[in-house]
Computed example of a mutant assay.
Amino acid sequence: MIVDFICQSNFGRSEGGRETWAYQFLPALLARRKDVLLRVYGQRRPEQPDTTEALRAAAAPHADRLRSHFLPATQGRWPLPIAMIRAFVAHKRRETQPAADVTIAAGSVIELLALLASRRARRTFRVLWLRGIWFNEKADRVPRPLHGLLRRLEIAVLRRAHLVLANGDDIAAHYGAYGIPVTVIKNAVDLARWEMPAPRLVEPVQVAFIGRLTPEKGILDFLAIARAMRDTPDRDRFVFRVMGFGREEEATRAAVERGDVVWTGPVAYDEMPAVLRDVDVCAAFTFAAAVGGGGGTSNAMLEQMAAGRVMLAWDNAIFRQWLDGNNAFLVPQGDVAAAVDALRAIADDRQVAMARAKAGSARVADFGVPRMMERFDAVLAPAMAARR
């Protein structure tokens, strides 16, 4: 069986949640299905490193059944998503190998558009594995008069998939409201990798934001919380740490200059467990919103829960899939004052905070990679049989 996998990514191990998931799913697929030849199609800008060997190393000892193709992209005449679609179509036109039996478009409507745009590639069983709610994430960058049109276009394209998967119940509910059936397969976490001692929770308490520095991920709110705390008598009880890169680097740099936060930039994949050992509290601040919001399950959050860190999160549909008042500190979305109060509660009662962190670790204990793959096999085979 030939399986194509399309994702608008360079597959850098430290790039984000999609990449973390891909490095779990792709090797597991090759290990589980000895009959699969896997062809991966990504996108690489000129300044990005070549990750071919990283993918092959992750797939060992099955790398002989892995082929990777990185489509060129330059920021210029075409936006990167359009460049990805055009390059994929051109590549497929030149390709002499047999057509795929199954194609997995992983990410959003963009990857599915690339698949559909190629006459040769679309003659396949089409799986769309959603990693978020595309329009919600992009809507704040699109003129409002175009919102309705883009929403309708997204839904129309999604209907062309034969099977739609998602990593979160919130994604399934969102697209289900438009009549698109979505099957949820929860993200997996490498439990052994995140085994570590419990957080120390001694003052100053180490509070971390780990992820892309974008408004929808909540970095601006994290900076506001750090700033608000510095104006209180409790300012010396906490250290606020930022780890990541993204659109709001200027705002983060300004917070560093004010002395509000410590910013270490992105953390390499191999270094993250050691870094997380020195963190007490992790912020999970992705917004659930129709404009400028996100969706799905955060791989970083699952890793932080598995590591037994204390979770401070928005009380929204994204995080309610995993977190509640027994295993995390939930505050109203966007409520800076409530988050400041929650941090005080964590510092004031170490025993309660530790109990919730332990409960969070127990919550993810049954979500290893084998479970994710079992669920995928159980869904894919009947769906393909129904199309024959």
Rank of each mutant, 00 (worst) to 15 (best):
A177N: 12
L130N: 02
I133L: 11
I225C: 05
A139F: 06
G107L: 03
K138H: 04
V205N: 07
H147F: 05
M229L: 11
D140N: 04
R120F: 02
V142N: 06
R200Q: 15
P181S: 06
E154S: 00
F135I: 11
R131G: 12
A198P: 12
L163K: 00
I225Q: 02
A198S: 08
V242K: 05
V184H: 07
R152T: 12
G132W: 12
M229A: 14
L130P: 00
I104T: 07
E203V: 00
L130W: 07
M229E: 05
V184L: 10
I155W: 05
I155T: 04
A100D: 00
A172R: 00
F245K: 15
L130C: 06
L128P: 00
Y178D: 08
S118V: 03
V189K: 07
Y175S: 04
D231Q: 15
I210G: 07
D101M: 11
L128E: 11
T183W: 06
W129D: 13
R237H: 13
L130F: 05
R212E: 06
D140S: 13
E203L: 09
G132Y: 02
T183G: 10
P199D: 01
E111K: 08
V109C: 09
L149P: 05
D170W: 05
P143R: 08
K217V: 02
D140L: 10
P143Y: 04
E203D: 06
T103A: 00
R241I: 12
E137L: 06
V142W: 12
I225R: 04
R131K: 15
F245L: 10
L115C: 08
P199A: 03
E195H: 09
R212M: 11
V202N: 15
I104P: 01
D231Y: 14
R159C: 13
I185G: 11
Q206E: 04
P143E: 01
L128H: 01
W129V: 14
L191I: 05
A139I: 06
R193D: 08
L213R: 03
V127M: 08
V202L: 11
G107Y: 00
E154I: 12
A173Y: 06
V239H: 11
P98I: 01
V127H: 02
L149G: 10
F209G: 03
R131L: 10
L158Y: 04
E111V: 04
G211E: 10
D140M: 13
L113R: 05
R241Y: 11
L220I: 09
Y175I: 07
K138I: 12
A114K: 02
A166H: 05
R200E: 14
V142E: 07
G244Y: 05
R122E: 00
V189D: 03
G246I: 03
